[in-house]
């Protein structure tokens, strides 16, 4: 953990200029992430949460949120709300609904467009995210390939979790999804907007994955590890006890 630091709890209005000048050397320009703003030569916190630092020069505030604010480049799960001939609109849980062009799918042409229905789920990437404009989604990467993006199969189960939980389970150091996969076959798609889609072979397994994810919210990394090892050993009772703790 040498290059990542969970520093301390900060509240809006706090100045952290002194703190940053102790961390970031003068050779670098400090990059301010979410929850921080610069006022003339002071750096002020605007959200309450944990101040985090990544070497060499990245500082941000990790906070608890439930409402998504679009950010360019993030992967989200949208629900199609209206259908047009050129574009569809998708609800991504933000203040505005997002626009998704039917031509921004792999291999789509004017004559050959994907057939989307209202209520379909799409896993897409945010292309335009500006506070003054409505967000725009795409289902292709810069090479015109879909990669993992596109319409999600209708057989899965979608649920909404707080945004910090999605960040937690998607963090490479979190063993939860991997351990679950060693025990039960399932598919998962987690959007940065707090929507998680899972698809397992049976209802029991779907619920197990759902419970494991939702209980991970209030667990420390160590507790997640304990839960994972219990899931791995198939000890259902112990798993339940850990979850309910």
């Amino acid at each position: 953990m040498a290059n990542r630091l969970n520093c301390r709890v900060v509240l809006p209005g706090e100045s952290i200029s002194n703190f940053i000048s102790g961390l970031v050397s003068d050779n670098f320009k400090t990059v301010l992430g979410p929850g921080l703003q610069r006022h003339s030569d002071e750096i002020v916190v605007t959200k309450c949460g944990i101040l985090k630092y990544k070497k060499p020069n990245l500082v941000w505030v990790e906070s608890h949120e439930k409402r998504y604010v679009p950010v360019r480049g993030e992967y989200v799960i949208g629900i199609i709300t209206t259908k047009g001939s050129e574009v569809v609109r998708a609800d991504i849980g933000a203040g505005d609904s997002a626009v998704l062009s039917l031509l921004s799918f792999e291999g789509a042409t004017k004559r050959n467009k994907p057939n989307l229905q209202v209520g379909d789920l799409v896993y897409a990437r945010v292309l335009v995210a500006s506070k003054d404009m409505e967000p725009e989604l795409v289902c292709v990467n810069s090479h015109g390939k879909s990669g993992e993006l596109g319409v999600l199969p209708s057989s899965g189960f979608l649920f909404t979790v707080p945004l910090n939980l999605v960040r937690k389970i998607l963090c490479p150091s979190c063993p939860l999804l991997k351990t679950l996969g060693e025990r039960i076959p399932y598919e998962i798609t987690a959007g940065a907007n707090g929507r998680v889609w899972i698809n397992a072979n049976t209802i029991q397994n779907t619920l197990l994955v759902y419970n494991a994810i939702s209980f991970a919210e209030h667990m420390t990394p160590e507790e997640v590890n304990i839960m994972c090892s219990e899931i791995l050993h198939g000890n259902q009772e112990a798993t339940l006890v850990t979850m309910l703790k």
Binding site: K47, H64, K66
Partner: peptide, 11 residues
């Protein structure tokens, strides 16, 4: 407002 994670100047 703090709980919602909305950006604020101060408390």
């Amino acid at each position: 407002l703090m709980d919602a994670g909305l950006a604020m100047k101060c408390l």
